[in-house]
Every structure is written in C-alpha cells, then in structure tokens.
Design a protein around this nucleic acid. Structure first.
Length: 323
DNA sequence: CGATCCGTCACGCTTGATGTGG
DNA sequence: CCACATCAAGCGTGACGGATCG
C-alpha cells in the first residue's frame, strides 16, 4: 500500500490526504506511483478508480495522465530555478572559450568581455558570482574544451544545461520517450542503458537521492517494495496490437480477482470506446475494486517497446502523441 | 434529481538557479 | 568563497462546476 503508515521510519514525513494516501506537499509523487497511474490507465482502469486505489487525488491523477498524453513522460517537470537563465549554453560556451584562450582571466574580466563581444547585454550578463560558479561547476578542468555540449557550435537546446546531471538515459525511454524538457530525474529511475523502462525498486532513504545532501534530507518516503503480481498481464497487454487490455480475459467473476478486474475493465473500455463514456458499465459495483489494494508491488514493465493504442476512459488515446 | 466522474484552478508548499553582500 | 535572499518554476491537494448517468 502506497499510503504507508510510517512505522518503519521515524524520519518519514508527509501528510495524509482525504483518501488516506500519504503525500509530501510540494513534492512530486514517487515515480513508481506515477508509473502505476499510467499503467492502470492503460489497462483501462478509470481515473477515479486509480485515484481511490492508489489514494492519490483525482486531480493529480488527471494531471499526470494529461501530461503523459501530452508529452509521453510520466516524470514530473523540473522543479525549482528562477528567472530566465542568463547562463545559456551559448554564454557558457563563450566563457569556456575565453578561459581556454586565457586561463588567467578573472570572472570580472570575462563579464566585461561578454559585454564587449555583445554576447550579453547589460540586462542579461551573468554576475561575477555566476561566472565564477560557471567556471567552477560547468567548466572545471579545461582539459576538454567544448566537450560536445553544443555551446560553442550552437544547436543545443536552451534547456540543456551543462551543469545539470545528465538527464535520463535516452535508452530509458519508458519514462522520457517523448519528453525533451528539462526534468528532474528521480534516482529511483534506473539509468541503466540496457534496461529500458526498468524501474528500480524505490528503496529510498530520502525522497530524491539525486539531490541528496544534508540540506535536502528532509523528506523520506517509505521504502515501497514494488512488486507487481500482474506484471505479466500488463506486459502482454502492452504488446497487444490493438487495444491493450482487450485480450486479457477471464472467466473469473470473483470479486477482487485480478482477472475479473481486467475483464471488467475490458468491458468498460470496449464499449465506451465505441459509444459513449459511462453508458455501459455492466456492473456499477467495483468488480476490480479491491484488487489493486494488493500493493506494494514491483514494476519492471517495459512499455516503451510498443506504442499500442489504448483508449482512455473517455475514448481518448493514452498513447503519447508523437512529438 | 442526486450521484458520479473528471477537467480545472487556487492554494500552500518545495525546489533550485541566480543574485547579493560580507 | 560562502551564506543567505529572491522568486519563478513545479508539486499534489481539495474544491468547484459542468457533463453524464441511473
């Protein structure tokens, strides 16, 4: 159960929402939970049921699914930062060039040269402190000038920040397959180049280890084991040539049984996809209600392999739009 | 007509790049 | 170089309201 009751760690923080789920105000949900939301939506579970089952507010579910539709990414956006960046890759590149040509240059000299060369104007020229920081953090040893970050030759995105840790590996396209925006990559996301979409078990000691420091160790999420008992159903659903969950069928009608859950889901979507939302739910009682309460689970699903068409609960494709 | 679903948005919060001052 | 301040970004929650259903 994601909504942990925190008996395992005296260091955990969080608030409890109306559904009984735990959240950290101002912080994104853990990636596995975000993934699970998309997973369940792809399986045809209605957003309201996702909300209840994961104990995440429906507004949040709606937002995450909308973002997924739009960008193909389940990851949260880049948090923090302020003001339009003045230290664009171009500026950083020029600073690097100056420093390469004259390693003895002071930050204030570089600042003046940026103005002199019309790289910046007086409104967007970095402060001496910023330049100093750039020299220290972004350029560092000048053994490899213009290390391919595009600063010198242009063409790099303004979002690209040579000071940032590498964004998620391009091979980890489950998470980020369409998302070229700057994002925080929680460390729970595997950066393994070979395990596309593999989500590491979130054995978090802090919320976001990538920003771990004594200063940032304030928020601890539970050590959520992430074992999905129905991973194979999901994976096979994802490989379906047409509508994901449609081939998941079962004779079982046991309430709470996963198969009946998927069967119900199938009915829901099969009919709603062709007709109208909310018109033909066979059984208003939650056939699949209790099933997903069997959290925690493990998520090792790969859904970047195929991009089948999955109708959402309102007949909208869940498949991310090509960007 | 009440219940339900879902999109939207204000709210209070955190974060982090940048600026400032010592 | 460091500590601190600033502030715009994103976060999830919770409430609202329109649409729909039974």
């Amino acid at each position: 159960d994601y909504s942990f009751n925190d008996s395992s760690s005296s260091q955990s923080y969080g608030e409890v929402n109306q559904l009984g789920g735990v959240f950290v105000n101002g912080r994104p949900l853990p990636t596995p939970i975000r993934l699970r939301i998309v997973e369940m939506a792809n399986l045809g579970v209605r957003p309201c049921d996702i909300s209840r089952r994961l104990k995440v507010s429906h507004g949040c579910v709606s937002k995450i699914l909308a973002r997924y539709h739009e960008t193909g990414s389940v990851l949260p956006g880049a948090i923090g930062g302020s003001k339009p960046r003045v230290t664009t890759p171009r500026v950083v590149g020029r600073i690097r060039d100056y420093k390469v040509k004259d390693p003895g240059m002071f930050a204030w000299e570089i600042r003046e040269k940026l103005l002199l060369d019309n790289v910046c104007d007086k409104f967007n020229v970095p402060s001496v402190s910023s330049i100093s920081r750039i020299l220290r953090n972004k350029i560092g040893p000048l053994s490899q000038p213009n290390n391919g970050n595009g600063s010198g030759g242009g063409g790099s995105s303004e979002h690209s920040d040579s000071n940032s840790p590498p964004l998620i590996s391009s091979s980890t396209t489950l998470i980020n397959k369409c998302d070229h925006s700057p994002v925080n990559i929680p460390s729970v996301v595997s950066s393994s180049s070979e395990s596309i979409c593999k989500i590491e078990p979130p054995t978090w000691s802090s919320y976001d280890q990538s920003t771990a420091s004594s200063y940032h160790h304030r928020y601890l999420y539970p050590n959520v084991a992430y074992h999905s008992p129905f991973q194979h159903q999901f994976e096979s659903a994802m490989k379906s040539p047409y509508t994901g969950a449609n081939h998941i069928v079962s004779n079982s009608t046991t309430n709470g049984d996963i198969s009946s859950a998927f069967t119900h889901t199938h009915h829901y979507h099969h009919q709603h996809h062709h007709h109208h939302p909310n018109t033909t739910i066979n059984n208003p009682t939650n056939n699949y209600a209790s099933f997903f309460n069997t959290f925690p689970y493990t998520q090792t699903t790969n859904f970047a392999v195929t991009t089948p068409y999955y109708p959402s609960s309102y007949g909208l494709p869940l498949t991310p739009q090509a960007s």
